[in-house]
Simulated assay, not measured.
Amino acid sequence: MADIGPAFEATAKRRETKAKEAEAEGNLVTARDNWYMASIHYGAAEWPYDDYSKLHVGLNAKKRECFANYARLADHKVEAVSIPFNGKSIPGWFHLPPGYAGGKLPVVVAIPGMDSFKEANVALANDRWLARGIAVLSIDGPGQYESPMLGVYVSMQNWMDTGPVCVDWLTSRPEIDAQRIGVVGASFGSFCATILTAHEPRIAATAVISTCLEPGFHTIFEEASPTFKKRFMWMSNYTDEAKFDVFVKTLTWEGHAEKIAKPYLVLAGEADELCPLRYTEQMISTMTGPRQLVVYADSRHSVGNVPAANLGPFPLTLMADWMAARLAGKPCVSERWFVETSGRVAKSALG
Rank of each mutant, 00 (worst) to 15 (best):
P331L: 10
W253S: 04
M319V: 04
G304S: 09
G141I: 04
A45M: 00
P307F: 10
Y145K: 08
A61W: 06
A268K: 04
D272K: 05
E340D: 13
N27C: 11
M156V: 11
F217C: 06
H76Q: 12
A224E: 13
P142E: 05
A110G: 03
V333C: 15
M37C: 01
G312K: 06
V246P: 03
I181W: 02
P276D: 09
N158I: 02
I195H: 01
E254V: 15
I83P: 00
T227A: 14
E21K: 14
L137R: 05
I139E: 06
A309S: 13
A123M: 14
L213G: 00
P164K: 05
K20I: 14
E335H: 13
L311Y: 12
T162A: 11
D127L: 08
K249R: 15
M156Y: 00
M233H: 04
L59A: 06
K229G: 01
K77W: 07
F117N: 00
V303M: 14
K229D: 01
R128E: 13
V136P: 02
R180N: 13
G312R: 05
F314G: 14
D51L: 08
G99H: 10
R300L: 12
L28F: 15
G351E: 15
C212L: 15
I195L: 12
K18S: 11
V109N: 00
C275F: 07
T280C: 10
M287D: 03
A7V: 10
D161E: 11
G216Q: 07
E214V: 06
S236D: 01
P215N: 11
L277I: 15
A44S: 12
R132L: 13
N69F: 06
V248A: 07
W253Y: 14
A297C: 10
L267G: 00
V295E: 04
L55G: 02
V29I: 15
L73D: 06
M149Y: 07
G99I: 08
P263I: 02
E119R: 01
P98E: 14
R326C: 04
K249S: 07
M319Y: 02
R132E: 10
I181H: 01
V165R: 03
G102A: 13
P112L: 04
A74K: 00
E16Q: 11
I181S: 04
P276K: 09
L170Q: 02
C66F: 08
G255D: 10
D245S: 12
T252S: 15
P174G: 07
V333F: 14
A271W: 05
V306I: 14
R202Q: 12
D115C: 08
F221R: 02
L130W: 04
V78I: 15
D298A: 13
A204R: 04
R326N: 07
F94M: 06
Q179A: 14
E223N: 12
R344H: 08
T288D: 10
C332M: 06
K347N: 10
P276V: 05
G43M: 01
W159T: 03
S187E: 06
K249M: 12
I203G: 00
E175D: 12
I111R: 03
P215E: 09
A207S: 11
I195S: 01
K77H: 14
L196M: 15
A178D: 03
G163I: 01
T317R: 11
D321T: 12
D33T: 08
M323P: 02
G304A: 11
T30C: 10
G289C: 13
Y36M: 03
A31D: 09
Q179G: 12
S225K: 07
T341C: 10
G43K: 00
S342G: 11
G255W: 15
